[in-house]
Design a protein around this nucleic acid. Structure first.
Lengths: 326, 326
DNA sequence: TTGTAGGCGTTATCAT
DNA sequence: ATGATAACGCCTACAA
């Protein structure tokens, strides 16, 4: 069944049917009604392939699915993908998945997706300083949005992010309000935008309360074992912290172990509100992932369907989920 | 750039280029080489849209992304999707995501995806007794594979599954081997294929060891709180179990809480090997999800690209991941 | 406001 | 083994 079938059924030309579909406002009310009915009766659907061939657009949005690394943080992608797919559908788009071992492979995939499938746009997660992927896409004027700020230039392209600094600051203030002064921090090695941001939130909150953060923080790659090791290290210091904020739930879980093994009550707050945090009762900073994904799609469709101007970035606020550990 | 460009470059007709692409064996070696070179030099890619319009096939496979329910089991989908996407890419297919609130909406989505996007096939997860979705697809001869057995008729369609009964049986034998006799079980209410299967594995293992399973099991909907409640209930019985096998990590986590609150050493084994299990040291039955997804794609592409016969189903074996709790 | 004509890039059919 | 031709379903001029 094609547009011609509908046209015959509704006693109009093919063109009129096309107009009803793509520019309803230029068709006379009565005619439009008749065509709409024919479409409904026949159960007609436009052929994406034919439309795509003519317009060069696929109504497809691509997003990368990463291999689950440590498992704890894996589930964040789940929630993000669901929000993304749902919002995309509402906007008339579909989400396409792809994998890539590294940035180079990812760029090769862009190329393939673009030239073979006419992909309309990309949603990137986790950008870095000087990310080659965004440069490649921008060079070719491919529409894309990142979940994560461009750490070099905030106006480089549309983005959505969660205010990590605000999250750790809130966590820190929560501990401060509970009477703690020496609130420590365990985060990732300097250099990653996300990690530096989270550490900055803690540091500023402490300074604002008149506490000197010097010596109260440690750096570690992500992982439970690392968190445990550094917590022990911190606790063995001259004037150890009495409570800790961490850059991830994994690190916080390590802290929990360290605290248990030296039989010490040590309030701790994680980051990401993963299922693990919920299961063990870990207080954690929660990112509005579903919403973030939705806003990514909003921005992308604004670029795709709207006037050719860069939409304003979106910075979402995280929230503190209180549980047993703090 | 089109095949015409390539044809000119290689001094052949468009059709010959098409043949090199789709039926290389009918083209003379020398000609083929020349065309391949032209393709490489030009960086030509076939247009999916045009091909799709002609063949009616999109080289797209659809898979549903479910809203994360309790979060603990959410991450299983993550791993599955990654395996699926990866294997699909290797076979020349791409994975498309969709959401659906219920079976009815899902069927409406099939219809849309099929008529508008020419989807080639579907991968369904979690089928039930008398699943309306599989019936709808089968009625229309749409290629699909399920991750999960068709509980009514094992030959109804191609499927991949993990032998849940074997998993719980292995867990049960592990506890038996450690000297336990009264090994209990906490599972889901009767009626769900997956749940009944897991319970059956435990029951048979117990019987094989000469232990009467009567009174040693309980039923609960999934969740930590429910697990805790039923574990307490079981422990309060006349001759309580000395170790437990659970149908999920959530339930097992509840058992852990119950055991802690009555200060009792109670070995427990969960199911799914979720990140939470890893984090808290819960011994758990692990499903080869990445592999399962890959086999789903294998079966589906066999139907799509191979001769028109139903490929044999695949039953994968789970493995027991030993940690602290058993 | 509605109708007509042409072409998007590919592959299947048929002829050479 | 290779080449010419038509058709897939739609959209965008342009004409009426």
């Amino acid at each position: 069944m094609t547009i011609a079938t509908v046209a015959r059924h509704a006693q109009v030309s093919r063109q009129t049917v096309s107009n009803v579909l793509n520019a309803p406002h230029i068709v006379r009310e009565e005619t439009r009604q008749r065509v709409q009915e024919a479409i409904a009766t026949l159960g007609y659907r436009v052929s994406q392939a034919a439309r795509q061939m003519r317009t060069g657009r696929s109504r497809l949005i691509a997003v990368r699915i990463e291999p689950t690394r440590d498992g704890i943080n894996g589930s964040v992608l789940d929630r993000f993908l669901h929000g993304l797919t749902e919002t995309a559908e509402a906007a008339g788009y579909r989400a396409l998945l792809y994998t890539a071992a590294d940035a180079g492979a990812e760029i090769a995939t862009y190329d393939d997706l673009l030239s073979a499938y006419d992909l309309d746009g990309f949603v990137l997660t986790g950008t870095d300083h000087g990310d080659p992927r965004t440069a490649w896409l921008a060079d070719r004027s491919v529409p894309f949005v990142t979940f994560g700020r461009p750490w070099d230039d905030p106006d480089a392209h549309p983005w959505v992010d969660v205010d990590g600094a605000a999250g750790t600051a809130q966590a820190t203030r929560h501990l401060l309000a509970a009477g703690h002064r020496r609130v420590g921090f365990i985060g990732w090695p300097a250099g990653s935008g996300v990690g530096d941001d989270r550490r900055a939130g803690w540091r500023e909150a402490l300074r604002a309360a008149g506490v000197d953060p010097t010596g109260l923080d440690r750096e570690a790659v992500d992982g439970i074992a690392e968190g445990e090791r550094l917590a022990a290290d911190l606790l063995a210091a001259a004037s150890p912290p009495t409570a800790l904020v961490c850059a991830s739930d994994s690190l916080a879980l390590g802290v929990l172990r360290a605290a248990r093994s030296c039989a010490r009550a040590l309030p701790v707050i994680g980051f990401d509100d993963t299922p693990v945090a919920a299961a063990v009762g870990l207080t954690s900073v929660s990112q509005p992932l579903h919403d973030a994904a939705a806003r990514c799609v909003d921005l992308l469709t604004a670029v795709l369907d709207g006037p050719p101007r860069t939409p304003a970035p979106v910075l979402l606020q995280p929230s503190l989920v209180l549980r047993h550990t703090a």
